[in-house]
């Protein structure tokens, strides 16, 4: 099945197979998948893959998608340089 060699997190190059194995081995939540595989921890802040990770976890018998946002958003929601963070204007 080529399906399994599909990249889910483009930023960190994490495949569907890696996520699937992680969920199956650790029976874990999206948050744990993120910490174990780095899926969702790249430059885009998980914007592209978070929904896919949630869905995969749900499909594989993990916690279903609920009102709570499984993969919390933390600032900065856009990568910013130290200069900007330090108050230096663009």
């Amino acid at each position: 099945m080529t399906n399994k060699e599909t990249v889910i997190c483009r930023c960190e190059d994490i495949t569907m197979r890696e996520i699937q194995e992680t969920v199956e081995r650790f029976q874990c939540s999206s948050r744990e998948v993120k910490l174990r595989t780095r899926a969702g921890m790249g430059s885009c802040g998980g914007r592209t893959c978070r929904g896919m990770v949630d869905k995969l976890v749900e499909q594989l018998g993990g916690p279903p998608i609920s009102n709570e946002i499984a993969l919390s958003y933390r600032p900065p929601v856009r990568p910013v340089s130290f200069g900007v963070l330090g108050g230096e204007e663009k």
Partner: peptide, 12 residues
Amino acid sequence: ASETPIPIPGWT
């Protein structure tokens, strides 16, 4: 909104 991706082999 952002676009919902559909992952497919080769989509990168």
